[in-house]
């Protein structure tokens, strides 16, 4: 290859990488800009929207869905999907209830049990997907139903209350930040969401597990042929996601002061929607936790704002659905151009 071709080739690739980078930044800017635009729009439309109490309510409403979406992000990045996250959340809440209310054991044990149960179930799903080669959609669809049934069986279809565990409701409803800065009563649930998101962002961008998560979604066979035990790593990702569902289970049960065994179905779709709005590709390999967080916020700002504007409930769902389609279409457009 002579000098001229070299130069042209590298300039061309530099140029195109520059364009792509700008595209990536654009997408994140786009999502963030739409979030800001929604907030501004709703603030102008109703004086009741932009108030500390309402912003806190929006953040609080994001906490459960946000944590689930963070869990879903990891699995989706591997090119998989986890449909069981909603009912797994409920199952973990029930486990916490069994340990704390029925077993009368101390609070930390209950929390550990919920997270541990989540991780174990995630590991099981991961085993079905990685070792037994059951397509993720099917494996986790089955798991979703199994867990739903188990929650009802364990509880006898009755909620378990946390009245005997003092401080349980504080986990999501109290405000540590509010104690320090009274003007900013951020509920603990929101704090948990941001801590979980931060931790996941660290895992995904700075650790071996994270790098393999992206690599699996990018080209699983190439990773396997690099001598990596792909099955083990994939199982680890599902287990991690499961553990995070355990945290979501603690949050929702703390919020409701009870483990409601009939809840959970449908929560997985909200979480996946948030992930997708946040720009993560369902094919895997591309996406960020920050995007997911923005996606989850867009969803709750939208629901909250439309309700404040007294938009009819039927239309609220229509608008939310349209936004999901629009968000993914915008992402497609960007990718075609880049």
């Amino acid at each position: 290859m002579n000098a001229t071709t070299d130069k042209t080739a590298s300039t061309a690739s530099q140029l195109s990488s520059g364009a792509r980078l700008a595209g990536g930044a654009q997408q994140k800017l786009l999502a963030f800009a739409s979030l800001i635009a929604l907030v501004i729009g709703f603030s102008l439309a109703s004086p009741n929207f932009f108030q500390v109490s309402n912003i806190m309510a929006i953040l609080q409403a994001t906490s459960v869905n946000g944590v689930l979406a963070v869990a879903a992000t990891a699995v989706i990045l591997t090119g998989g999907i986890d449909l069981s996250i909603g009912t797994l959340m409920t199952f973990c809440a029930v486990v916490a209830g069994v340990v704390l209310t029925w077993g009368g054991l101390p609070l930390p044990l209950g929390l550990l049990a919920a997270i541990g149960a989540g991780a174990l179930v995630g590991l099981a799903s991961g085993t079905f997907v990685a070792r037994m080669k059951i397509p993720p959609f099917i494996a986790t669809l089955g798991m979703m139903l199994v867990l739903k049934g188990l929650s009802l069986i364990i509880t006898g279809a009755k909620p378990i209350y946390f009245n005997d565990t003092p401080g349980y409701t504080e986990i999501s409803q109290g405000s540590l930040i509010g104690l320090v800065i009274p003007a900013l009563p951020v509920p603990n649930g929101v704090l948990v969401l941001f801590l979980v998101a931060l931790a996941m962002a660290f895992v995904l961008s700075r650790t071996v597990l994270g790098r393999y998560t992206y690599a699996l979604g990018s080209n699983e066979e190439a990773v396997r042929l690099s001598g990596v035990n792909t099955n083990a790593w994939k199982m680890a990702v599902y287990a991690l996601a499961g553990g995070i569902c355990g945290i979501a289970g603690i949050l929702i049960s703390s919020r409701l002061n009870s483990a409601q065994p009939a809840l959970g179905l449908g929560y997985e779709l909200d979480a996946i929607a948030a992930v997708v709005i946040g720009g993560t590709s369902l094919a895997g390999g591309r996406g960020t936790v920050l995007g997911t967080l923005i996606g989850a916020l867009i969803m709750s700002v939208l629901t909250n704002g439309l309700r404040i504007l007294s938009v009819a409930p039927e239309w609220q769902t229509v608008v939310t659905g349209a936004i999901i389609i629009l968000a993914v279409y915008a992402d497609q457009l960007r990718r075609q151009r880049g």
Binding site: S46, N48, F49, Q51, S53, N54, A57, Q60, A61, V64, I252, R255, L256, S258, Q260, L263, T303, N304, R307, I308, L309, S310, P313
Partner: peptide, 26 residues
């Protein structure tokens, strides 16, 4: 009667709806 919302009997969804209603209608 200023609002009629539907929460599917879901505890958490009904909670969020209520908070928004209280916000929208002080």
């Amino acid at each position: 009667i200023v609002a009629i919302e539907y929460g599917g009997g879901d505890h958490l969804k009904s909670t969020e709806i209520t908070k928004t209603l209280l916000q929208a209608h002080p």
